[in-house]
Amino acid sequence: MGAGPSAQGGRPRPERDLRAERAAALARRGAAAAATDSGVDHLVCACGGERYGVPLAAVAQVLPSRPATPMPGAVPALDGLVALSGRIVGVLSLARALGRPDPASDADAAAGHMIVLRGVHPQPLALAVDRVLGIARAPGAVAAAGAGAADPDRLGNEAASVYAPASGAAGDGRPDFVVIDLPRLLRRALP
């Protein structure tokens, strides 16, 4: 199917490279999808009546809560120590580290979760939370705005860096959450 005469006026029709057009269209579609999908995944957890997001890259594992051995003279946010896979891990109460009230009862704490962290502190650490809700993506612009900015949304807490609407269609059931700046949280909780 070369450049033959067209049905309109007998002029030759230019040859179309359909493969190149399709490749260009797919590249545009991929770029648009990447632009809408940019963001940072967070493990969203409940602490009291609030939802907080811990960057998923800093999460090693999530476990059911277990009793921690208290440390005399420890910082107030430290619940104690637990043994995990042959290591001693410090367990921080996320509520106390953020200056929030403790869970209402010991039964609530026993039903909670521990988020074991990686790469955020020289010592192995875990965060004690009421429960883990799931994974949500904070839009890239929101996640970037929270990185390195001290309390940009005036949340009253430097460790709670920015409020992030979870990505997805409106009403899809994904909760909004406050992004936790782990380095700031740990500097504040473990002086």
Rank of each mutant, 00 (worst) to 15 (best):
T69G: 13
G30H: 15
L117A: 05
E158F: 05
L43G: 04
D102E: 15
L94P: 06
A34M: 10
A83M: 05
P124H: 00
G148F: 00
E158L: 14
A136H: 00
L190W: 05
A33C: 06
S38H: 05
S105K: 12
A97V: 11
P139F: 01
G156E: 04
A57Y: 05
I180E: 01
V62E: 02
H42V: 02
A159K: 02
A145M: 13
G171H: 12
P101M: 12
A58S: 10
V179H: 03
A32G: 10
M114T: 03
A95Q: 09
L81S: 07
A31N: 10
L94E: 09
H42W: 03
A126R: 06
E21V: 14
R174W: 04
C47I: 08
L182E: 05
A83Y: 01
L56G: 08
A27T: 03
R187E: 12
R16K: 12
D79Q: 15
I180T: 08
A20H: 06
L26I: 06
P55R: 06
N157D: 13
V179A: 15
Q8Y: 09
G48Y: 02
G86Y: 04
L81T: 06
A3P: 07
A74V: 11
D153E: 06
R131E: 14
G90D: 04
L117D: 00
R184C: 10
P12F: 08
A23T: 11
V75Y: 06
C47L: 03
P67W: 08
P191K: 09
D151W: 03
A138H: 03
R174I: 00
A24F: 08
V89N: 05
V75T: 13
G49Q: 02
A20W: 00
A144H: 08
P124G: 09
V120R: 05
A159Q: 03
A138V: 08
G119I: 03
A20D: 12
A149M: 10
G49N: 12
G80S: 05
H121L: 07
A77H: 02
A35F: 07
S85Y: 02
A141N: 07
R188Y: 04
A33N: 10
D41P: 14
C47T: 14
A160V: 11
D79I: 08
G146R: 00
I88A: 15
A166C: 11
P139R: 08
L185H: 04
G173P: 05
D106W: 14
R28N: 11
G173Q: 07
R131C: 11
G140M: 09
L127H: 01
Q61H: 10
V129S: 00
G148L: 08
M71Q: 15
C47S: 15
G86R: 04
R51P: 06
I88E: 09
S6L: 15
H113S: 15
G173E: 04
L155M: 06
R87G: 09
S65Q: 12
L127P: 02
V178G: 07
P101T: 08
D181W: 01
A95Y: 04
A138Y: 01
A97I: 01
V132W: 11
A159S: 11
V129Q: 09
V89Y: 03
A83H: 04
A68L: 04
V132S: 13
S65W: 06
A144E: 07
D181S: 12
A35C: 12
D130I: 07
D106I: 13
I115C: 01
A149W: 07
G90R: 07
D102W: 10
R29L: 14
A160C: 15
P101D: 10
R13D: 07
R137S: 01
T69C: 11
R118G: 10
H121R: 09
S38G: 13
P14R: 12
